[in-house]
Amino acid sequence: MSHSIADNPDFPDRYFRSALGRFPSGVTIVTAEHPDTHAPLGMTISSFSSVSLQPPMVLWTLTQGAASRPALLTLERYVIHVLSASQIHLARRFARGSHSERFEGLALGRAPNGTLMLEDPRCSAWFECHNSQHHDAGDHTIFVGQVEHCHYQPKAPLIYHAGDFDLTPASEPLSRN
């Protein structure tokens, strides 16, 4: 059996994680309902990216050890909420505790196709997605969603950088002339 450098990198996991942390990312919350129990599911995700404009597609990843992973693999739809800088409390809330605790006392609504979503007017954007593909990659699963509906507003995003939230004051958005 042959081994490549990818099988045995010359750096520890912790070092790799710190190196990845040099790249800032936005912070999102993914919401849905359990396909069997209809209980709310939600988690903070910082691995979110666009995939395609035609058709409109996005991706996000989830660790394979996540308790909600089996349910998420079988869902028809989910909503990805892009958090604004004023929503750090939600990012922290949806990163720990049980799913029921995460939703306790929050206003919930429905996206146009009926998918459970947060009713928080401070979100920078949201995307209602059809759960079209998933791929196992290392210790994570990549979820690819075809965007069916979306909304945005000009709000400064919440940024995750170097292992923590970046609360550096945002500059005003640049105007396009």
Rank of each mutant, 00 (worst) to 15 (best):
N131V: 11
S171V: 10
V79A: 03
A107I: 11
A85E: 09
P56Q: 01
R96E: 02
M117S: 01
L53M: 05
R93C: 12
T115H: 06
H134Q: 13
A137K: 06
A85N: 04
F103S: 03
R22F: 01
P169C: 06
L106A: 09
M43I: 14
C129R: 11
S124K: 08
A125D: 03
G105E: 02
L73Q: 15
S175M: 08
R102I: 10
R22Q: 09
S132C: 12
Y15V: 15
S2F: 07
G109F: 02
D139F: 14
V147F: 00
P121Y: 02
H34D: 15
F103Y: 08
E101T: 11
D139Q: 11
R22T: 13
T168V: 15
S18K: 12
L158F: 07
H81V: 12
R77S: 05
L158Y: 05
R176S: 06
D164W: 13
F127M: 04
I142L: 14
D10N: 15
S2K: 03
R69C: 14
T61K: 11
S84L: 03
Y15E: 14
S132W: 02
L75V: 15
F103A: 02
Y78R: 10
A107V: 14
K155S: 09
N131G: 08
I88Y: 04
E172H: 11
L108H: 09
N8V: 12
C123F: 10
S25L: 06
E119N: 15
M117Q: 04
G163E: 03
N113L: 15
F127A: 00
R122T: 06
N131D: 06
V82K: 01
H130K: 12
L20G: 00
G97D: 04
V27E: 00
G163Y: 09
T141Y: 10
L106D: 03
T115A: 08
V58P: 00
G109N: 03
N8Y: 07
I5S: 11
A125V: 05
T63E: 14
A67E: 13
G114R: 01
L41N: 05
T28Q: 10
N8H: 09
D36C: 12
T61S: 15
R96V: 12
S52Q: 00
N113S: 11
T74P: 04
H99M: 12
L174G: 02
G163V: 10
A107D: 12
V147Q: 00
S171P: 07
P154L: 04
